[in-house]
């Protein structure tokens, strides 16, 4: 049926890969109370994207990726500095980037359909279905890199997430791994922007982790479960959106929310039985 069209196949491949890597770090983000960093970064990515659009860059990624990575590193720095409240800094940067991005688009844009452009960068309405093979490859390579990095550093990420002070005291380079996490998050966010648009990225990162945490109580099981849930939700959401003609991003997030509710209640039932 629809699978015979290459753009549908590309969309499914990319969507599943993005869902996979965005869910992996979700657990760490939720546990480190870093969820808002994801949110802030997605707004920065939006700002960068509007600049790229105005400059009419052929390869937007070349601008968006480095800008987002640099912001991630900066946000992490301020987050660790007790003097400046991390969340205030993030709120400032993210809202600023959002306003700035929209302003630039408004003033300089040559497009006739400005509202449509803004809407699709914010909610990712159709972009997933218009990917070129080149973009598919880039997404695939980056996602696989993210998954590999996560597997290789899994034990270190656990140690640093669980107890940063202890990890530091016993000779683990906690700062370095925090930095790594920040950079990987930035990459994931830029990737996920293609799928769900910048406003809905946090949902993609956080919901699978929250769902899995309702069901399991050890780190490995939670991580694996959140990856599986995320992939299933993304796949299912994309199919629904293609068949029903609904926006891709919001459909996927809606499925994520539904699954979270199911997990929430089955988690309560499960705990009820155990006790």
């Amino acid at each position: 049926m629809y699978l015979q069209y290459p753009f549908v196949r590309y969309a499914l491949i990319v969507g599943v890969l993005i869902a996979l890597c965005s869910s992996l770090l979700g657990v760490t983000l939720v546990l480190k109370r870093f969820s808002f960093i994801g949110d802030g970064l997605s707004h920065v990515a939006f700002g960068a994207m509007s600049v790229a659009a105005v400059l009419q860059l052929t390869n937007e990624m070349m601008l968006i990726l480095p800008v987002t990575v640099i912001s991630a590193v900066m946000l992490l720095r301020t987050g660790q500095n007790a003097r400046i409240k991390g969340d205030a800094a993030i709120a400032m940067i993210s809202v600023g980037a959002l306003a700035f991005g929209y302003l630039i688009m408004n003033i300089f844009s040559t497009s006739s359909n400005l509202t449509g452009d803004v809407c699709s960068t914010l909610f990712g309405s159709t972009s997933i279905l218009t990917l070129t093979p080149g973009e598919v490859w880039l997404c695939a390579v980056l996602s696989i890199a993210v998954v590999l990095i996560f597997i290789i550093f899994y034990n270190k990420i656990f140690a640093v997430t669980f107890d940063e002070e202890f990890a530091k005291a016993t000779g683990t380079r906690a700062e370095a791994y925090n930095l790594l996490v920040a950079v990987v998050i930035a990459v994931v966010i830029v990737l996920a922007m293609n799928l769900v648009g910048s406003l809905l990225i946090s949902a993609l990162v956080i919901f699978p982790a929250l769902s899995a945490m309702r069901l399991f109580d050890n780190f490995k099981a939670v991580t694996i479960c959140s990856a599986i849930l995320s992939v299933i939700c993304a796949f299912f959401g994309m199919i629904v959106s293609i068949l029903g003609g609904t926006p891709v991003g919001s459909t996927i997030v809606a499925v994520d929310v539904a699954v979270f509710l199911i997990c929430y209640f089955s988690g309560r039932v499960k705990r009820g039985i155990v006790r």
Partner: peptide, 22 residues
């Protein structure tokens, strides 16, 4: 300062003590 909702088994935590050796 471990959060209340941190999902980690005893085994995982004890093993993480070896991280510095790795």
């Amino acid at each position: 300062i471990v959060q209340k909702d941190f999902p980690a088994s005893v085994k995982e935590i004890v093993l993480s003590g070896c991280q510095g050796r790795c």
